[in-house]
Design a protein around this nucleic acid. Structure first.
Length: 414
DNA sequence: GTCAG
DNA sequence: GCTTATGCGC
DNA sequence: CTGACCGCGCATAAGC
């Protein structure tokens, strides 16, 4: 009900409501989907290769997909392989979670890294010492591993499991908008001991929404529903301006059967970095996202807004209910608007997986580049000086420039 | 907590 | 009122 | 021994 977002669609966006060109050129709506699996992953749309000029014939382009060979070091871990040390990694996961709850993100991450390499170890560990040879496993974790091998668990984990405060904080943090700091404050200063206690406490807008949909947000989104959202969003956007380019990224793009939320990336040929930096009259991109959001509201797809700025929206959506059917579940949806010259790095980044991104970034660094969600730039290893962003007109460009063989999104799932 | 510098 | 810091999510 | 480990958009609190 709050939704402060009601900046109605009084926003004129001159070039926006542009001539509905002939008809569907670019982002042809969802159709294609249906045959998911492989195609679905490439989810999206037509890559407008060059900034301007494009938008012509049917989606041609896609660059010449001619990857050079260039063996990729394949450091990757095969996720399908068996974990011979599950007992150990399970315990370490608890420790990672605890550190995260306390706000020690780096320790939490360190445990996660150790978990990854231990999971990939091809046989059961026999000693902590053996574990310490693995990347990410130092003396401290080696000791833990030794303890787990000997006793089957860790005393520390046992104690933490009995710790009321930790357990409660862990629970509170399941509410979207409550992090380590707020959870600790609720417990220590406001006497909160359960989720329901929160109802009588001052909450931020985000936290109220987190409470309202506490159960729904933890439910996974079936791929079929994701397909529907993709079609809907493309449809609404094309209705506004058929030059919008849309990608549903995240695990959906990697072909997963279920997803945690809906991650939408958006760009428009007339929204470029230059047009965003200077304040020319044409930089009405500042209303672009607002326009999109108000349109989605009008159509009844959005139910709550968590945040809305010029380039990023976070909110809640729900498919229209059909009479005599079970109501649909509320879903978290994020929509980001990128200048077109930053679009493919953004798509690449948001497609993940996180692990894949870490790997590719380290690879980039080795080759004298720095890759972010905004750009791919050269970077001098010595001086650290970075160059200007390279022109990226497709995901393939990124692979090609890094000398890595193309990997479809499903192959980045690690 | 781990690793690189 | 305006500016900066912090929390949060990703 | 010390700092990096992604760091940025948005909402809200804190500071002036």
């Amino acid at each position: 009900m709050p939704s402060a977002t009601s900046k109605q669609s009084t926003l004129p966006a001159s070039w926006l409501l542009s001539p509905r060109k002939e008809q569907r050129t670019c982002p042809s709506p969802g159709r294609q989907q249906t045959s998911l699996k492989s195609t679905a992953a490439l989810s999206t749309v037509s890559p407008p290769s060059a900034v301007k000029s494009v938008r012509k014939g049917p989606k041609k382009d896609a660059k010449a997909p001619t990857p050079h060979k260039k063996h990729t070091p394949l450091i990757p871990i095969d996720p399908s392989k068996k974990n011979y040390n599950k007992r150990i990694t399970d315990v370490l996961s608890e420790l990672s979670k605890t550190e995260k709850n306390i706000g020690n993100q780096w320790k939490a991450q360190a445990y996660s890294k150790a978990i990854l390499s231990i999971s990939a170890y091809p046989k059961p560990l026999v000693s902590g010492k053996e574990a310490q040879d693995l990347p990410g496993v130092g003396g401290s974790i080696a000791k833990l591993v030794q303890e787990i091998i000997e006793t089957g668990t860790s005393e520390r984990v046992q104690n933490e499991a009995k710790d009321e405060r930790l357990q409660t904080i862990s629970m509170l943090m399941r509410v979207s908008g409550i992090g380590p700091s707020a959870a600790a404050k609720f417990y220590d200063e406001l006497g909160v001991r359960s989720i329901s206690d929160l109802l009588h406490r001052p909450l931020t807008r985000h936290q109220k929404i987190g409470m309202k949909y506490f159960n729904e947000f933890e439910k996974r989104i079936p791929r079929a529903e994701m397909d529907r959202w993709q079609a809907i969003i493309k449809d609404v956007l094309e209705d506004i301006d058929d030059r919008f380019v849309v990608t549903i990224a995240g695990s959906y793009r990697r072909g997963q059967d279920t997803c945690g939320d809906i991650d939408v990336l958006l760009t428009h040929p007339e929204f470029t970095t230059s047009s965003s930096s200077d304040e020319t009259p044409n930089s009405n991109h500042s209303v672009l996202l607002q326009l999109v959001i108000s349109r989605l509201h009008e159509k009844g797809y959005l139910t709550d807004d968590i945040s809305l700025g010029d380039v990023k929206y976070m909110g809640v959506c729900k498919l229209p209910d059909v009479p005599n059917t079970e109501a649909h579940i509320h879903r978290r949806i994020d929509i980001r608007l990128s200048p077109i010259d930053m679009y493919w790095p953004a798509v690449f980044h948001s497609t993940g997986s996180d692990q894949f991104n870490r790997w590719i970034r380290s690879l980039a660094a080795e080759q004298g580049y720095t890759l972010s969600e905004y750009s791919l730039r050269t970077k001098d290893k010595k001086s650290g000086a970075v160059g200007t962003p390279l022109r990226i007109s497709s995901e393939e460009d990124i692979f090609r420039l890094l000398g890595v063989e193309w990997r479809a999104p499903e192959q980045r799932d690690w």
